[in-house]
Design a protein around this nucleic acid. Structure first.
Length: 464
DNA sequence: AAACAGACCAACCGCAACTAT
DNA sequence: GATAGTTGCGGTTGGTCTGTT
């Protein structure tokens, strides 16, 4: 193990650059090595001269053997630091700049599937580093949590809800056939990364649900990078509009576009809620392999029940597409009711389309089984799902729906820390659905989302 | 203009897995 | 198999930038 000996050198970058330029030749370091003198390694920001030395070293010797860099070049950096610098800043084909909207969506999906597996996520985002993704995610989740906004975009929330509904034990014996054309991150993960649990990741279950029931929850590739606006970091009203667009360019080689399934209802909930079948939501989980890693869920705090409403930016003056979204949600909810065979709370008028979906049998079978957990979780799950969806319906249809108290259990850990992440029981995965205190008679939707623009990212700083 | 807060970013630290001896 | 060295990963920290008061 390498430990940084001694105190870090503290001087200005200019000074360090000068030192690096004229002071640290190979001879000097070799001399030090011969004398076995302790080398005080430098810490802190890299100078351009150091970068040049490192680049030159990699050009000559290739990547790897990072501890030799200091020995061969005289660079007063530990191997770990060199590797980090190269990986995060110097290696070619790095993509700098802010994340595109589609990258943001993909990150959310990957995080929902993988948890805080930044390196694995980075593998699906060419040119991006794990550190970059990690910083991005932590910053935005912290901001969103503070604002009481959902951590995940609605489409991912829905998949999580489905996954939560379908407990692991219910599905573990089932095969998980790949959906048609589902070349995706999961396939890559399953093939190239190690899963460490014997149970499938939560989002696997949504896929299994989709495959088992004929309700066909479809998971499609993420949107391309050429979106005109950020669907997540921008006001949701605009998001919904954006996701009405049709795209075709692939995100990356690992997330190719795929043919759309013509007979598949769209369950993408907000980000891609369309009355058509054009959801591009990527498959979020591979077929359960021999080892399945459960996603860490470090977000103990849940989302407000109105989170889904944000996707549509619903409000008194709903644009047409948002009405469509609401109708689509309504239909989706009805389908889920039918599929899971749980009486929903009184909602908007039932949609007759729901009965044409024949997913109920299988789901009923699973839902009817006694779970390891107490029987309440079933209601909790549905409540969670309803909570995500109903407020949005409320916003669109002004149908008041009482929120199940079970889903209102807040968890205000308020931290994005990893401490609770990896050991959390995935069967109790928090969907990020939280119920902030609702004051007065206004609905959460009206209070929290869209109607007055408080959900806009630009307003975040003022919320708290 | 100054103070402050938040966002963003780069880098470090500790740990674990992997590999070579 | 044991040990040391190396690499990779994830969490955290601290500095800088930017917007707000």
């Amino acid at each position: 193990m390498e430990r940084s000996p001694g105190a870090a050198l503290t001087s200005s970058p200019e000074e360090e650059e000068e030192k690096a330029a004229d002071g640290h030749g190979e001879e000097a370091v070799e001399q030090e090595d011969e004398e076995a003198a302790p080398v005080v390694l430098k810490k802190g920001p890299w100078t351009t001269a150091e970068d040049a030395m490192l680049v030159d070293h990699v050009r000559r010797h290739g990547e790897g053997n990072w501890n030799a860099v200091q020995r061969l070049t005289g660079l007063l950096r530990c191997g770990k630091s060199c590797r980090l610098r190269w990986t995060n800043h110097l290696r070619p084909n790095l993509k700098k700049g802010s994340f595109s909207p589609d990258e943001e969506i993909l990150i959310a999906q990957l995080h929902a599937q993988l948890g805080n597996k930044w390196a694995r996520m980075a593998a699906h985002l060419p040119g991006r580093t794990d550190n970059e993704i990690k910083n991005y995610w932590n910053t935005r989740t912290k901001r969103r949590q503070r604002a009481g906004l959902p951590v995940y975009p609605p489409e991912v929330q829905l998949q999580l809800a489905l996954a939560k509904r379908c407990r692991y034990d219910d599905f573990s014996p089932l095969a998980s056939p790949q959906l048609p054309g589902a070349a995706n991150v999961q396939a890559l993960d399953a093939a190239s990364t190690g899963y460490t649990s014997s149970r499938p990741a939560p989002l696997d279950l949504a896929r299994q649900l989709a495959a088992t029931s004929q309700t066909a929850v479809q998971f499609l590739p993420p949107p391309p990078f050429s979106a005109p606006s950020s669907p997540w970091a921008k006001p949701f009203a605009r998001n919904a509009q954006y996701f009405q667009f049709a795209h075709s360019s692939p995100v990356s080689p690992s997330t190719p576009t795929r043919p759309l399934h013509p007979a598949t209802p769209d369950l993408s909930l907000g980000y891609g809620v369309r009355s058509t079948d054009q959801s591009r939501l990527a498959p979020l989980s591979p077929s359960p392999g021999p080892r399945v890693e459960l996603p860490s869920n470090q977000f103990g705090q849940a989302m407000p029940p109105t989170s889904a409403a944000a996707a549509g930016g619903g409000g008194a003056a709903l644009p047409d597409h948002q009405h469509q979204n609401a109708a689509s949600l309504e239909k989706m909810l009805q389908e889920l009711h039918d599929a899971i065979k749980v009486d929903p709370p009184s909602l908007a008028p039932a949609n007759g389309d729901a009965e044409r979906h024949g997913g109920g049998a299988v789901l009923e079978r699973h839902g009817g089984r006694e779970n390891k957990l107490d029987g309440q979780h079933r209601d909790d799950d549905m409540g969670t799902l309803f909570d995500m969806m109903i407020p949005r319906l409320n916003a669109a249809e002004t149908v008041p729906v009482p929120l199940p108290p079970a889903a209102a259990a807040p968890n205000h850990s308020g931290s994005t820390s990893q401490h609770s992440s990896d050991d959390q029981d995935p069967s109790t995965v928090d969907l990020g659905v939280d119920l902030p205190p609702v004051a007065g008679g206004a609905s959460p939707s009206d209070q929290d989302w869209g109607l007055d623009g408080v959900c806009h990212w630009s307003n975040m700083s003022r919320i708290c």
